[in-house]
Write a protein that binds this DNA or RNA. Structure first.
Length: 505
RNA sequence: GUCCCCAUCGUCUAGUCUGGCCUAGGACACCGCCCUUUCAAGGCGGCAACACGGGUUCAAAUCCCGUUGGGGACGCCA
């Protein structure tokens, strides 16, 4: 079989939706895993809602996800133009050919009347279809009226279906789909104002672009028989392969809410998720690897992706699962990728000043590496690493865990011993290790009894990365001389001891 | 209303096409234990599902019919 050609056809009416991104991902995976082409087509015929900045945003989001395309509006290609609005002439001409062939006809009906009829039909207990009134106008008369009356163009379903009782097509995910012809009325191909209808434009464009596989959301499944009819009228030898992906839904099965964010790729990007993490979570919605593993890189997914393994039922998008996967990907990301992201979020949260001081980059690299495996998204870094940047005895003591350690005579002795051992020198890993050993010999405390009090006193927080790694990073931060300076560890311990000196429990 | 799609732990899913290997497997979340230089991570364990009702069969999560529930289409929206 020749190389497949697939297309992703978003409307630039907003930022890239998660569900739409998933459709793009599956198309991309299908093309890339089979040596095919991934075509990007912008469906912008709805001029009122399609904005150039939205188009740019969608393209940007796709690039960020790493879903590059082979042909599209910016780089062109042999099947252009790739903006539907620039293909209007083709749509019009094709529609005229259908009229001449008797597969389509002009409809002069009043839309208000049509609407009323639809309601009546439905109330009477059936599908609400166009009754086919204008189909019966003689061709000569119809042609004459076209010159002076505004009109739409409809497909003559009876003529195209050739007496069949049902329209059938094969779906790669759902199998054989059969729709009774009685459910399909003569639908509109060209609107009164001269724009093509969706069901017409997609089919013609896909045909002209030689698309071999249409991979899209389940919401288009019921439209497909109509499109099969259009393709047939247009003389296509056989329909393309179809694959209708189950929809992604939100909590409780309701549509993913766009309101609170969290439904658009831009939001996840803004939050500092890695694209690998998002891709991994998205691909697991309706698809699973043959081996059952779920932590997957793009390459691993590509190596085993197959539409046959796509499920037919809708999936609820689970943020917890995303976060679990995302933090694993974060931990794998290189420091050079993490640094700019971290700087951005640290600056935004006010932990770092806006022109970031000289030398801060390397330090932030070491810092973020300590925290990466506990971060689903970089927006969590300022909170996780807050103790490094902000130290305030009264704030620290507000934590019951911290207060407890400092009010316990035994743990106070541990902390006091360490302060003596370290002295005024900056803490390095070997120096800390030596001091901790000395404290252990002096006090007899070990394990949790030893290290937890030290952590609490030296950082001001009850939890964080491994002490021996964290402490030197804090000390390095001190030397950076930030506008709001990082407080040295020993100073923290002294301040906390002083603040609680009379309060032993 | 008519037609189409869907239905396994709370969630994502494996298994369904090709019935027996399923006392239904994994992951996330949750709970417990272990380890440990705290917490986290890691290791081990636990909780937890075949929507319901009929049929076919020696045997059904798997095939068939029905019911219920969810989603979609029936637009001169996409």
């Amino acid at each position: 079989m020749s190389a497949p050609r697939v297309r992703f056809a978003p409307s630039p009416t907003g930022s890239l939706h998660l569900g739409t991104a998933r459709t793009a991902l599956f198309n991309w995976l299908f093309a890339r895993s089979r040596g095919g082409s991934f075509v990007l087509r912008i469906e912008d015929t709805d001029a009122a809602r399609s904005l150039p900045e939205h188009e740019a945003g969608v393209l940007d989001d796709l690039r960020w996800l790493g879903l590059g395309w082979d042909e599209g509006p910016d780089e062109g290609g042999p099947s252009g133009p790739y903006r539907q609005s620039e293909r209007l002439d083709r749509h019009r001409q094709a529609a005229e050919r259908l009229v001449m062939a008797g597969a389509a006809y002009p409809c002069f009906c009043d839309t208000a009347r049509l609407k009323k009829e639809r309601l009546e039909l439905r109330a009477a207990g059936g599908a609400s279809l166009y009754p086919g009134r204008c189909r019966r106008i003689a061709p000569a008369e119809a042609a004459a009226r076209r010159a002076r009356e505004s009109h739409a163009l409809r497909l003559n379903v009876d003529a195209v279906a050739c007496g069949e009782t049902a329209i059938e097509f094969n779906d790669l995910i759902h199998g054989r789909i059969r729709t009774p012809i009685t459910q399909i009325g003569d639908f509109v191909l060209m609107r009164r104002e001269g724009r093509p209808s969706y069901n017409f434009a997609v089919v013609l464009d896909d045909l002209e672009m030689e698309i071999t596989h249409v991979i899209r959301g389940d919401d288009h499944l019921s439209n497909t028989p109509r499109q099969v009819l259009v393709a047939r009228a247009l003389g296509r030898s056989g329909p393309p392969g179809f694959a209708h992906l189950p929809l992604i839904v939100g909590e409780g099965g309701a549509p993913l809410s766009k309101r609170e964010g969290g439904a658009s790729v831009a939001w996840f990007r803004e939050q500092g998720y890695t694209p690998e993490g998002l891709i991994n979570a998205l691909v697991l919605l309706g698809w699973s690897a043959p081996g059952g593993q779920d932590l997957l890189t793009r390459e691993e997914i590509l190596a085993c992706f197959d539409l046959e393994r796509v499920s037919g039922s809708p999936a609820i998008f689970d943020r917890q699962k995303l976060d679990a996967l995302a933090s694993r990907h974060m931990a794998r990301a290189s420091e050079s990728r993490l640094i700019p992201l971290a700087l951005d979020h640290l600056r935004r949260s006010g932990h770092l000043p806006d022109p970031v001081p000289e030398g801060a980059g390397a330090w932030v690299g070491r810092l973020v590496s300590l925290y990466a495996d506990r971060l689903a998204k970089m927006a969590d870094l300022p909170r996780e690493a807050a103790p490094v940047f902000r130290f305030d005895p009264s704030l620290a003591l507000a934590d019951p865990d911290v207060r407890k350690e400092l009010c316990e005579p035994a743990t106070r002795r541990v902390i006091e011993a360490l302060v003596e051992e370290i002295g005024g020198e900056p803490i390095t890993a070997p120096r800390f290790q030596a001091a901790a050993d000395a404290v252990r010999r002096r006090t007899g405390a070990k394990g949790r009894q030893l290290y937890h009090p030290l952590r609490v006193a030296l950082t001001g927080a009850p939890s964080g990365p491994e002490l021996v790694k964290l402490l030197p990073v804090i000390e390095e931060g001190v030397r950076l001389r930030l506008p709001r300076p990082v407080i040295p560890c020993v100073e923290r311990a002294r301040a906390l001891l002083a603040a609680t000196s009379g309060a032993t429990a």
